[in-house]
């Protein structure tokens, strides 16, 4: 019951400090994130932060995070909605990116990211984990709902903006392949390989391209290289989710097997 201590101290702290509600919320927030995310202590401190200052968007957001990561989206949603309502320029992109990543809820992702784009007058920052420009997430969402044309123009605009993610050219190449623009797919794959030469997915999709070109020997070499990269270098990975266009080792092995 040691965690009861902060509760008992709470009134003392409130009386002792002649600080604003926001400053007290920040203090409780700082205490909350010192504990394991989602733990009782952490959540209680975060509860305190939003009770002393209900307009503290950062507290609402942080309280929502463990529910998201644990797949409790029913609890996550009203909490993140509160953060979005209080600070849309910060949390709209987060909500859209999370809906995209954790649920493949492309409709919510598109609605949130386009609303953010309007709010920021055309600018879009990167996703919360820094891996993706939000415009790439928007492009991928368009692709997944079947609007490949808008997907490609959005991805091209994202790359042209200079705000680059590690996998931009890979996603663009896969999208070109889906609509049969094979020459553009090859060029995008070459750019992806130039930027990230040890990535297994680059060679898996290059092998797919070469198969389409009936270059079986080159495809076999590419799939073998993909397997080697997967086992000894890099593959597309995220600790929480399986990213779009990521390839499993078993898929690479199946591709090799088919060419035997």
């Amino acid at each position: 019951m040691r965690w009861l201590l902060p509760l008992l101290l709470l009134p003392c702290k409130l009386f002792a400090q002649n600080s604003s509600a926001r400053e007290r919320a920040e203090k409780y927030y700082a205490m909350g994130i010192e504990y394991r995310q989602g733990s009782l202590k952490s959540q209680l401190y975060l509860d305190s932060s939003i009770i002393v200052d209900p307009t503290f968007a950062k507290g609402w957001h942080e309280k929502s995070v463990p529910y998201l990561k644990n797949g409790d989206f029913i609890t996550w949603k009203p909490l993140i909605d509160k953060a979005v309502a209080l600070a849309p320029n910060i949390h709209l992109g987060t909500r859209g990116w999370c809906a995209f990543s954790f649920l493949h809820d492309y409709e919510t992702a598109i609605a949130d990211i386009t609303a953010l784009e309007t709010l920021l007058q055309g600018y879009l920052p990167s996703s919360g984990n820094g891996m993706y420009p939000l415009r790439m997430i928007l492009g991928l969402s368009y692709r997944e709902i079947g609007n490949e044309t808008l997907a490609i123009s959005t991805m091209e605009k994202s790359i042209a903006s200079g705000n680059r993610g590690l996998y931009d050219y890979l996603h663009l190449a896969v999208t070109y392949m889906q609509v049969g623009q094979w020459d553009k797919a090859r060029i995008a794959l070459e750019q992806s390989i130039a930027g990230y030469p040890g990535l297994a997915e680059n060679y898996y999709y290059l092998g797919k391209y070469q198969l389409q070109q009936h270059n079986i020997a080159a495809a076999r070499t590419s799939f073998e290289k993909a397997k080697n990269c997967y086992l000894h270098e890099f593959h597309f990975i995220d600790p929480y989710v399986t990213p779009l266009d990521a390839v499993a080792l078993e898929e690479i092995e199946e591709a090799i097997e088919k060419l035997k």
Partner: peptide
């Protein structure tokens, strides 16, 4: 007073949800 009452209620609800040691973490 509201904060303490809320948090104590939270603890009582949490401890009533299941046998020891749950829930130490959400979900």
């Amino acid at each position: 007073f509201v904060v303490v009452a809320f948090l104590l209620l939270n603890c009582i609800v949490c401890s009533a949800q299941s046998k020891v040691p749950h829930p130490r973490t959400v979900n």
